[in-house]
Amino acid sequence: MITAYRDNGEAVVISAVKPPVSLPSDIVWIDMLRPDKAEDLLVEGFLGIDVPTRDDLKDIEPSSRLYTAKDAVFMTASLVCKAESGQPELTDVAFVLTKGLLITIRYDEPKAFDLFTAAMHRIPGGCTTGTVLVTRLFETIVDRTAEILEIAVARIDGLSLQVFGDRPAGKRRPPHFLEAKLMDVASHHRLVAKTRDSLASLSRVLTFLYTVPTVQENKDTKELCRTISRDIQSLSEHASFISGNITFLLDASLGLINVEQNAIIKIFSIAAVVFLPPTLVASLYGMNFDFMPELKWAYGYPMAVVGMVISAIVPYYFFRWKGWL
């Protein structure tokens, strides 16, 4: 689907079935969402450039992501999408500046684009050129990335309270509670990792965009580009801090699991020690010797039973006194 935007934020849908003869003069942005071959050819005919395909967007080499050709600037950035779901993903989006227009090619729907189109008409001074528009769009993308990190922080704080929060006295955690929380830790780590990758990609793109002549010629755009770069740096440091918190939460959860497992093993160990003296008594009187005085004694059996009970009770209270139980 091809959606063209006028400088006042008004959207115009362009169909490849009944294409217009030419683009309206006030169009500043062409947004291509999951374009097919016919739509690629249509835009290429309008602008005289080669539109990057899905395969082109997958290239990871800097020379394939950031370059200039035929007076057009090509940039590819990796953006986070589906952040609110349990399976966040990175999607590659191409940004092309040519003839005063911005062309975006994407095969997914990052929320930043919806936020930008909804507020495009409220941008101070308007988006009269593709250069102004792309810097404002990157500003919205970075703001959305900051929001994603806030979502991650809120989720991690909630998970931390579940793992380390106070429990009512005598109430135990459900079986495999901590093991289940490890899956949540992995999910949060995936979100933060994807965000860090996106910030690294955006940092490269903004560094390249800052050198574009049309950006250098506009003082406001140049300053905005520099501000966005500083924001990306700050967010990258914040993402590293969050990643450290996730690592701590993972290590602490594993430590708690080991503590619980050690407590179970300790119970079995103490039980084995408690029953060892009665076993010794029973083994002693189970020997097949002819001369054992207690075998002929009328109270021999009760005495042996009492001896086994006492030999079990004494270690138990000894362990209680030492605080091992």
Rank of each mutant, 00 (worst) to 15 (best):
T129E: 06
I141S: 04
R122F: 01
R122E: 06
A146N: 13
E139K: 11
E150Q: 12
L137H: 03
P110F: 00
T117M: 07
F113I: 14
T140S: 12
C127T: 14
T129I: 06
Y107N: 01
L133G: 05
F113C: 08
H121N: 13
E109I: 08
H121S: 15
G130I: 09
A119H: 12
R122M: 03
T104F: 01
T140Y: 13
A146Q: 10
D143W: 00
R144D: 14
L137T: 02
R136Y: 11
F116Y: 15
T117H: 11
Y107K: 01
A118L: 08
E109S: 13
K111E: 15
M120K: 00
T140F: 13
A118F: 01
Y107I: 03
K111Q: 11
T131V: 10
P110L: 02
K99N: 11
F138P: 09
L115N: 12
R106D: 05
P124A: 05
G130W: 07
E139H: 13
R136H: 15
A146Y: 05
G125R: 10
L133A: 05
L102I: 04
K111R: 10
E147A: 11
K99Y: 01
I103L: 11
D114P: 10
P110Q: 03
G126F: 03
T129M: 05
M120G: 00
D143H: 07
V142K: 02
E147M: 08
E147G: 11
T135E: 09
I148H: 05
K111L: 14
P124H: 00
T135Q: 08
L133T: 02
V132L: 09
E147N: 09
A112Q: 06
V142A: 13
I123F: 03
A118K: 13
V132S: 09
G100Y: 04
V134S: 03
Y107P: 02
L115G: 07
A146L: 08
R106A: 01
V132W: 03
H121M: 11
L149G: 02
P124N: 06
T129G: 10
A112C: 15
V142M: 06
L137R: 00
R106F: 03
Y107H: 09
E139W: 14
Y107G: 00
D108C: 04
L115E: 12
L133E: 03
A112W: 07
F116H: 10
